[in-house]
């Protein structure tokens, strides 16, 4: 990857506001916090994810679901209209359903908590996709199509017939940079950090704001935590 120059490199490195990457930590366990109170459903993180990771047309590693019945539409609760979003990408589970079922270990958990996908090993059986409770894995059904004639981003493109998904931007973590969806969020709704450090921003937020995991009852124990909105936001507030 050294021969590639990321436009992102030109931007300032991750600041404390986005959380922190401590490269000196011996045993980090990376986690992401998504603040539903701050998310405005703008899809910036999804778009930067596409360009950072060279995600082909028709696929998204990261998406913004709208809580409720219709896209970008409020739902009704206690006679009032509410509007919230659920940004959704790989949950990087501590107990992933996908890695267990992969017949060739093409998807596997790293020691730092990131769930990886090896496009060179993958045979394209899509069992991981069946097993994933979050619907965040995407498959290269045909030859990947891109809006540009050249590859974008900082990772190798994946071939036809293989699976891909959010990687926690591990290529950036190695450089001490937070994942691209973190720094690109205009509402600073995403925070990244080390779950093993009780004083990290993510640990504190999860503690103080009652962070929850998606589909907690399935026991997958995601490394992505959501902060519920403290104040239900109506259309007029």
């Amino acid at each position: 990857m050294a021969d590639k120059v990321s436009p992102i490199e030109a931007l300032p490195p991750a600041s404390r506001e986005y959380g922190e990457i401590d490269r000196t930590s011996k045993k980090p366990r990376w986690a992401m916090v998504v603040d539903q109170e701050r998310c405005i459903g703008c899809w910036s993180c999804c778009v930067i994810c596409k360009s950072e990771n060279d995600v082909p047309l028709g696929m998204w590693w990261n998406r913004i679901d709208t809580v409720g019945e219709a896209l970008d539409t409020p739902y009704s609760e206690d006679g009032e209209l509410r509007m919230h979003w659920l940004p959704l990408a790989c949950q990087h589970c501590e107990n992933p359903a996908c890695t267990k079922v992969c017949p060739v270990s093409a998807t596997y958990p790293r020691e730092d908590g990131a769930v990886m996908q090896d496009p060179e090993r993958c045979i394209g059986c899509r069992y991981c996709m069946v097993a994933c409770p979050y619907g965040v894995r995407v498959f290269n059904w045909g030859t990947p199509e891109r809006p540009t004639d050249f590859d974008t981003g900082m990772v190798e493109p994946r071939p036809v017939g293989t699976m891909e998904k959010c990687s926690f931007c591990v290529h950036r973590l190695a450089d001490g940079q937070v994942p691209s969806c973190i720094w690109s969020c205009p509402a600073q709704a995403r925070i990244f950090g080390d779950l093993n450090d009780p004083e990290s921003a993510v640990s504190r937020l999860i503690r103080e704001r009652a962070g929850y995991q998606l589909l907690e009852e399935r026991g997958t124990d995601p490394h992505v935590f959501y902060l519920p909105p403290r104040r239900k936001r109506g259309l007029w507030t």
Binding site: P56, G58, D65, T66, G68, A70, L86, G135, G142
Partner: peptide
């Protein structure tokens, strides 16, 4: 059916 049933759902996987 999408397991997380909020819209817009899962990306289809081919260019539309």
């Amino acid at each position: 059916y999408a397991t997380v049933s909020y819209p817009p759902g899962v990306s289809i996987g081919t260019a539309q």
